[in-house]
Design a protein around this nucleic acid. Structure first.
Lengths: 337, 337
DNA sequence: ATCCGCGAGTTGATCGATATTCTTGCGCCA
DNA sequence: TGGCGCAAGAATATCGATCAACTCGCGGAT
């Protein structure tokens, strides 16, 4: 900057108001004992100069930045985007500013972005839907960086996630109650692995509990970007499923497209249940019946855990929170014909 | 933190490798002249200790943080969310990390979040859809903080926005070509004021250009959250509009809901054109004809301007960029019956 | 008269890096 | 042999805050 505007420092304020910088510091932080008259003089100098304390200098000395990093894999997924917003609000409410990093699932990028966060000395990191290398997590934990994992799982770190077993069970039972017996599970290939596995297992157990037998070929991935091949045989068969549980709303909504392009109406031919409860699922034109994650609670719990970890360090054992989802019935599910 | 993990500093590396910290610094920054053998010794010490330079200390000395703040008013609006993602990617590509602040249109919050960004000494700020107090902007400019405004306008700052006149004209001409003569404009009440005004004016002029006369009562706000009252009389009238231009896709999609709840089918009874080109507008079930903003160009231009302003300061006059949108025709518009 | 305590404020060390200036040793040339 | 130049690295000031330790003056108790 050539026409640089030299920001006033604490020394400038001290000089102008005729006190020492300690006194200015005390006034700014409302600590120590400062007489009213001195305080007024300092405040006036502050206003006159437009002084704003330099967080960089404070951060260096206090070894604390009030910054938290949020690393999110798949922002295309609206649920993550909505959750990040909630986390940002919670963080702001606790005096933290968030550094958001989208990695788009690129592992290399992920490592370098996290590296940048650590150089900035963030107080903690939220790993949202962390798809990446487990070694990265191990390293963070080894360095005692406060970390909270959201919608993903590790026994060594603080975790918050929805209860997949309960959620999938809600979905399956809903379909069963509507009379469906041929039920498939459509998975999102870019979904975080531990969550995907949990939901796949939960699905099979839920079927068994309902007296139905899972078919291996009816747990299938659908990637709207790529070829539609893997899922089509299942849909085109004469005895195609009449009910589908989708791994998440993003997949479910794309699946509606695919089904209807292939002459299968939702819910007339196939009932569809999503998972997440993103905003647009509630649009009348979409009307997705879905397992709703308690988004605000998720965000709040995340910041409670992170703040606790920042305060107390790693003395206490990792905390794991499973939140209970709920089913919202809309128009994508109907009685089996 | 009680079980604190003391991060290694440049001094620790210097001690371990038996050199001065200047040399370590030179090795880390690949500057100065360091012999290969010394370099190797230092690198080994770095690896052994897990040393990572402290950006806080560097920032303090260099008066540069490589942080940019992004202040966004209305993240409920998917377009903003998608644009923030693009900006984040562009920033990361240029070595900046972004601090994202959602203000939700709360002016008080906005000022305090910007204050926090300035305390963190961000290198620059992106104001996206800045709804807030013009005094805040004036202050930023007075303090010579590099600022770029996106999707909003000020003659004193660098601005990037879509060309509202061209966009609205595309929408109106499309409806006119389909035979519509009774065309309304539905505005988003939380939309940033300069953009709203620009679109309202553009709408009226586009009508005139098409030989139609604007009706004042047909430029009306719709807030899905509040009462639906203000817009219903227009829709219930016998000579209700047969074409609607919505201020943005968010409003358009909520408007579909409202129309269909009131027995007006889209596009059968009313054709609807949106503005923005958010992802879900392309879903078959939505099929919104819309004026698409060049999202990536918008994000790229934003960071080009911001980077330039950070480098060169305020020697050069503000730059204003108007980007040309395009129309994507889908199924929400049809020939007038 | 002496001492204590306290309010009000100052001094100075410190955080962890960068960058400028300074030192040292060595080879080379006149 | 003396002096010069340069490569390699060391010393040190600096950024802008915080905080513990210290000073100073004054009023009241003994």
């Amino acid at each position: 900057m050539t026409s640089a505007f030299k920001r006033p420092t604490i020394n400038d304020v001290a000089a102008l108001s005729g006190v020492s910088k300690s006194t200015v510091s005390n006034v700014m932080r409302q600590s120590g004992t400062v007489s009213d008259s001195t305080r007024a003089r300092v405040m006036e100098a502050v206003a006159q100069l437009g002084y704003r304390p330099n967080a960089t200098a404070r951060n260096l000395l206090l070894r604390r930045t009030n910054l938290v990093g949020v690393v999110v894999g798949d922002v295309a997924n609206a649920f993550d985007a909505e959750l990040v917003t909630g986390i940002e609000r919670q963080a702001a409410g606790r005096g933290y500013t968030t550094l958001v990093c989208n990695t788009g699932g690129d592992t290399r990028l992920e490592a370098s972005r996290i590296e940048a966060l650590l150089e900035q000395r963030v107080d903690g990191i939220v790993l949202l839907d962390f798809t990446g290398d487990r070694a990265v997590l191990a390293q963070l934990l080894a360095e005692r960086v406060p970390v909270v994992m959201v919608s993903c799982w590790s026994e060594y770190a603080d975790c918050v996630a929805v209860d997949d077993v309960v959620g999938i069970d809600l979905a399956v039972r809903h379909l069963v109650e509507l009379g469906h017996e041929r039920i498939a599970h459509v998975v999102d290939p870019v979904m975080e692995a531990t969550t995907r596995r949990a939901r796949v297992e939960a699905f099979e157990r839920a079927l068994l509990r309902a007296g139905l037998s899972p078919r291996a070929e009816w747990t299938v991935a659908y990637d709207p970007g790529n070829a539609e091949a893997p899922i089509l045989p299942m849909l085109r068969a004469a005895d195609h499923p009449t009910g589908i549980v989708a791994a998440n709303d993003y997949t479910a909504i794309r699946l509606i497209e695919l089904l209807e392009r292939n002459g299968l109406a939702v819910p007339h031919d196939i009932s569809l249940v999503g998972f997440d409860g993103i905003d647009i699922a509630g649009l009348a034109r979409i009307g997705l019946t879905t397992v709703v994650q308690p988004r605000d609670t998720l965000a709040r719990t995340t910041l409670e855990l992170l703040a606790a970890r920042i305060e107390t360090g790693y003395d206490e054992a990792p905390q794991q929170h499973r939140l209970i989802p709920s089913l919202v019935v809309r128009t994508s599910t109907a009685l089996r014909r």
